[in-house]
């Protein structure tokens, strides 16, 4: 068995009396897609925020590559190679699609202090951005301002930015949200291949996508992991059916 890249143990977070994350153990191994499902309000996005460092945990540990990273802030964790995508697209609205991905490529180089060389002539950044856009099928829209892209295109641009970061792990918060059937199908095919590049911790509401993609599935209800297993195991898990799938099956 290969060592996990990411390992959470006993991770907890409360907002007042509300436990959004309750002693969660979870790991992510090389080459896998580990899906996190659960009803609305189960604390899935909060868990991603805890891992990415946007929220500080109250207790528990987060190990990345065998190293404890709980004390690192969001910026330091991103630099180690934890790259997240957002549930609601979070882009630079006045930049073009290419400009956004170029900026991600610049960020990967940790490069701030360039004052003379024009990014519009920066072949390295442009080539990398175009390659990432091409992989998600957006190269035809490279010059379009983000504010003029469709919702689906913005979702894909999120993925392209994450690709340009060349992360060690992807933290994806509902990448399919609002993509439509055709778009989702394409993205499923894409993520399926992406797992070999870096493992993916995937939050997703689209059950078809989860069952097709996930090597393992963890079910989160009220901040607690109530079940974990392969797609088949989860599909037939009695507790999961009542807590979660029951609503959808009706």
């Amino acid at each position: 068995m290969t060592e996990p890249v990411l390992e959470l143990s006993g991770l907890s977070k409360s907002f007042g009396a509300l436990k959004v994350t309750d002693a969660v153990d979870l790991d992510l191994r090389p080459g896998e897609i580990h899906a996190l499902i659960g009803p609305n309000g189960a604390g899935k996005s909060s868990l991603i925020k805890l891992v990415a460092g946007e929220l500080a945990a109250d207790a528990g540990s987060i190990r990345f590559d065998g190293r404890e990273i709980s004390d690192l802030d969001q910026i330091e964790r991103a630099r180690l190679g934890l790259t997240r995508t957002f549930q609601v697209s979070s882009l630079i609205p006045e930049f073009s699609a290419r400009g956004n991905v170029m900026f991600a490529a610049q960020a990967r180089r940790k490069s701030i202090f360039g004052f003379f060389r024009q990014v519009s002539r920066d072949r390295e950044l442009i080539d990398e951005a175009m390659e990432a856009l091409d992989r998600v099928g957006l190269s035809g829209r490279a010059a379009v301002r983000v504010s003029e892209l469709s919702h689906g295109e913005k979702r894909l641009l999120e993925i392209a930015m994450a690709l340009a970061m060349r992360p060690r792990i992807f933290l994806m918060d509902e990448p399919m949200a609002g993509l439509g059937q055709e778009g989702s199908a394409k993205l499923i095919g894409f993520l399926d291949k992406l797992r070999t590049q870096a493992p993916i911790l995937l939050i997703e509401h689209d059950m078809d996508a989860v069952f097709q993609l996930a090597d393992r599935i963890s079910v989160l209800v009220s901040g607690k992991i109530i079940a974990r297993g392969t797609a088949d195991e989860i599909r037939n898990h009695p507790e999961v059916r009542t807590a979660y799938l029951g609503e959808d099956a009706a």
């Binding site: 990415a52 946007e54 969001q74 910026i75 330091e76 991103a78 630099r79 790259t83 997240r84 957002f86 979070s90 882009l91 630079i92 609205p93 006045e94 930049f95 400009g99 170029m102 900026f103 991600a104 610049q106 960020a107 990967r108 940790k110 701030i112 990014v119 930015m161 970061m165």
Partner: peptide, 18 residues
């Protein structure tokens, strides 16, 4: 680029590790 990105979406810039 970094400065204009910060003005428009600071959280995104932090998420990219800058």
């Amino acid at each position: 680029m970094a400065l204009q990105a910060v003005r428009q979406n600071e959280g995104r810039v932090a998420a990219l590790g800058l």
